[in-house]
C-alpha cells in the first residue's frame, strides 16, 4: 500500500493536460500506462523500484472515488483539483454551477463533527 504513490499519480496527472485528457477518456488504461511511463520513475534515468498500487487504491483512482480517497487520507488538494478539472464542466452544463462540488460535499457529510483522516504519510 502506498498513499505516496496515489498522491504521486494525482500530482503528475493533474499538472499535465495530456495526462488529464487520457485519464478522463480511459482511467484504467491511463493508470496502467502512467505506472510504466511515470510512476516507477524517479527521473528519466532512475527508477523507484518498490512503489505499486493496492487493488483498492487502483479501484479508487479508476472510479475517481473521492469518498474512498478522503477516508484513506490522500491529499485533498490533489484529487479536488484533478476531479474538478475532469468532471466539473460536464456537471455544470447538466446540473448547474458548482453541482459537482456540492454533491461531493453532500456525500462526505457523515464526516462533519468527526476528526478527518490525516493526509500525513
Amino acid at each position: 500500500m502506498s498513499k505516496y504513490y496515489v498522491n504521486k499519480f494525482l500530482y503528475s496527472i493533474d499538472r499535465d493536460p495530456e495526462w488529464v485528457a487520457r485519464y478522463k477518456e480511459d482511467p484504467a488504461a491511463t493508470i496502467d500506462r502512467w505506472e510504466k511511463e511515470v510512476g516507477i520513475w524517479l527521473n528519466s534515468a532512475e527508477k523507484t523500484s518498490w512503489l505499486s498500487f493496492t487493488e483498492d487504491e487502483r479501484r479508487a483512482l479508476i472510479n475517481s472515488d473521492y469518498e474512498w480517497l478522503f477516508a484513506y487520507g490522500a491529499h485533498f488538494f490533489l484529487y479536488l483539483t484533478l476531479f474538478i478539472g475532469v468532471f466539473s464542466d460536464d456537471w455544470t452544463e447538466e446540473k448547474g454551477p458548482l453541482s459537482y462540488q456540492l454533491e461531493w460535499a453532500r456525500r462526505l457529510a457523515p464526516w462533519i463533527g468527526k476528526p478527518y483522516p490525516s493526509v500525513a504519510l
Binding site: 478522503f70 485533498f76 479536488l80 458548482l98 456540492l102 461531493w104
Partner: peptide
Amino acid sequence: ELGGPRMFG
C-alpha cells in the same frame, strides 16, 4: 475546507 464536507458552503 477543501475536498471535505464543509467546502463550497
